[in-house]
Amino acid sequence: MKDIIVGVDIGATKMHIGAIKDSKIFKDLVIATSANAPEKQIIDELIEGIESLCGHDFVGIGIGVPGLIDEEQGIVYDLWNIPSWKEVYLKDSLEKHFKKPVRITNDANTFALGEKKYGQGKTYKNFVGVSLGTGYGTGIIINHELYSGTLSGAGELANIPYLDRTIEDYCSGKFFKLQYQREGAEVFEKAEQGDPEALKIFDEFGKHLAESLKLILYILSPEAIILGGSISRSFKYFEKSLMETINTFPFKRILKRVKIFPSAMPDVSVLGSAAMLDK
């Protein structure tokens, strides 16, 4: 169909492929990422997934990938969680196969793009989308446009040193594993049951996350910070400690204006991938 766009969110454990029409995902598919497989095998599995969902009946493909991207050439570089992807000419491979345009950017950027075009980011001129999942990523919208920087690397706060490790180690799913040897989903389930230890863990997480958001306020001073990713669904359990810590930010007039809230769109990154072609 002429108006279908394929959106793809590639992660270390799964690839989420969606067929988007009229700004909505009307069918989708999730397949496992063969993260330790050779480069070509992973590309072939992505092609098979797209074909099983849509055949060749679409106008183009947008992809979000957790790494450095040459957006113009569509080259993916040095994915930590997919070791064989060192220098992957993904755009060329897919365009050669499907004969359709392909756009690629960092997956945190697709989250921000999705919020800007389809979600709560519509009303903001300048905002930052923060993805909280296996890792920590940020997508930056300035003057209504995505700012991705060189090799799609703008906003890579994850690797900034923090305490004895990095921001990502304390502000993503790694926090629960490194500090408490537990999965974030398990802590969430316990918090839902009112477990005091789980609630305390989320309270601590909120404090660490707030410190990273304060850096965003210092650097960009956006109108809003929108939280996404699996951990954002636990927002009610760390909102209090997050806001208490955010309120130590010294510029009170900025604090009065900035909005911090979780995304209301579970598949926003897939939509955001498609948004690169949905002009």
Rank of each mutant, 00 (worst) to 15 (best):
V65K: 14
I4M: 10
F26T: 14
G129N: 07
Q120L: 15
G74M: 12
I104T: 08
M265H: 07
T110P: 00
F98M: 09
L94N: 04
M276C: 08
K96M: 08
I141S: 12
F251L: 13
D57L: 09
E204D: 06
L94Q: 03
K207Q: 12
I31A: 12
K259D: 05
S34V: 15
G64L: 04
T166N: 06
I47H: 11
A35P: 06
F98T: 03
Q73R: 13
N36P: 11
L213A: 07
S234E: 07
G137D: 03
S23Y: 10
I225L: 12
I82C: 00
K259Y: 03
I141K: 09
V59S: 11
I231E: 01
V88D: 01
V268Q: 01
P266G: 09
I216S: 02
D195W: 04
E183F: 11
I140Y: 02
N81E: 03
I47G: 09
E115W: 01
S152N: 13
Q181S: 10
V8H: 15
E71S: 13
A19M: 10
F26G: 10
I104W: 03
I201T: 02
S212Q: 06
E204Q: 12
L220H: 14
I10T: 13
G18W: 07
K14R: 15
E145T: 09
Y77H: 14
L199A: 09
Y118I: 01
S152F: 05
M243P: 00
G133I: 00
L215N: 15
P196A: 00
G119S: 06
D70G: 10
T33W: 13
V6K: 11
N126P: 05
Y118M: 07
S131K: 14
S172Y: 07
D9V: 11
P101M: 13
A12K: 14
T134A: 08
F205E: 00
F188C: 09
I226C: 08
K40N: 06
I226L: 15
K27D: 09
E48D: 04
I254A: 01
G114M: 00
G149F: 15
F127G: 01
K236G: 04
L277G: 02
A19N: 04
P250N: 10
G137N: 08
I43P: 05
I226Q: 02
F238E: 00
I225H: 03
K214P: 11
T123D: 08
C54Y: 10
K99A: 12
L217E: 06
G114K: 01
A35Y: 13
F98L: 14
F111T: 04
E211P: 03
L227Q: 04
I219S: 10
F58S: 03
G7L: 11
K122I: 07
K177I: 04
E87G: 10
D164F: 08
S84A: 02
T150Y: 15
V268M: 03
G74Y: 07
G228H: 04
S84H: 07
I5F: 15
V8T: 13
G137T: 08
E223C: 12
G11E: 01
S148E: 13
I167V: 08
V76G: 05
E197S: 08
L277Q: 05
L178Y: 05
A185E: 05
S269W: 04
D78S: 15
G64Q: 05
E71K: 07
L132R: 00
G194P: 08
A210M: 05
G119I: 01
N81K: 15
E189H: 10
T13H: 14
